[in-house]
Amino acid sequence: MRILVDADACPVKEEVYKVAFRREVPVTLVANSHLRVPPHPLIHRETVTNVLDAADDRIAELAGPDCVVVTADILLADRCLKAGAAVLAPTGKPFTAASIGSAIAVRAIMVDLRAGGDQIGGAAPFSKEDRSRFLQALDGALVKLARV
Rank of each mutant, 00 (worst) to 15 (best):
P26V: 13
T28F: 14
L29T: 06
V30R: 09
V30Y: 10
A31C: 12
N32Q: 07
N32I: 00
N32Y: 02
S33V: 11
L35H: 06
L35N: 02
R36I: 00
R36E: 04
V37M: 02
P38Y: 09
P39H: 06
P39T: 00
P39Q: 13
H40W: 00
H40Q: 05
P41C: 02
L42Q: 05
L42K: 02
L42A: 05
L42V: 01
I43W: 06
I43Q: 03
H44P: 05
R45L: 14
R45K: 10
E46C: 08
V48I: 14
V48F: 11
T49L: 14
T49M: 10
N50S: 10
V51M: 14
D53F: 13
A54F: 04
A54G: 03
A54L: 05
D56H: 14
D56T: 06
D57H: 14
R58Q: 07
L62D: 07
A63P: 06
P65F: 06
P65H: 09
D66M: 08
C67L: 07
V68F: 07
V69D: 04
V69L: 15
V70C: 03
V70K: 07
V70N: 01
V70A: 09
V70D: 03
T71N: 10
A72V: 03
A72D: 12
D73E: 13
D73S: 08
I74R: 06
I74D: 04
L76I: 02
L76M: 11
A77S: 00
D78Q: 13
D78M: 07
R79W: 05
R79K: 13
R79E: 08
K82V: 11
A83N: 14
A85Q: 03
A85C: 04
A86T: 10
V87E: 04
V87D: 00
L88N: 00
L88W: 07
P90M: 14
P90S: 09
T91A: 05
T91F: 11
T91R: 09
K93M: 04
P94C: 03
F95G: 00
F95Y: 13
T96W: 09
A98F: 14
I100C: 04
G101F: 15
S102L: 15
S102K: 15
A103Q: 09
A103L: 10
A105S: 15
V106W: 13
I109D: 13
V111Y: 15
D112Y: 14
L113V: 08
L113E: 13
L113A: 07
A115Y: 11
A115V: 08
G116N: 12
G117H: 10
D118K: 14
Q119C: 02
Q119S: 12
I120K: 04
I120R: 09
G121R: 13
G121P: 11
G122Y: 03
G122Q: 00
A123L: 11
A124L: 06
A124M: 08
P125L: 10
S127Q: 09
S127P: 02
K128P: 00
E129G: 11
R131M: 05
R133F: 02
R133Y: 01
F134L: 03
F134K: 06
F134E: 01
F134G: 03
L135T: 05
L135G: 00
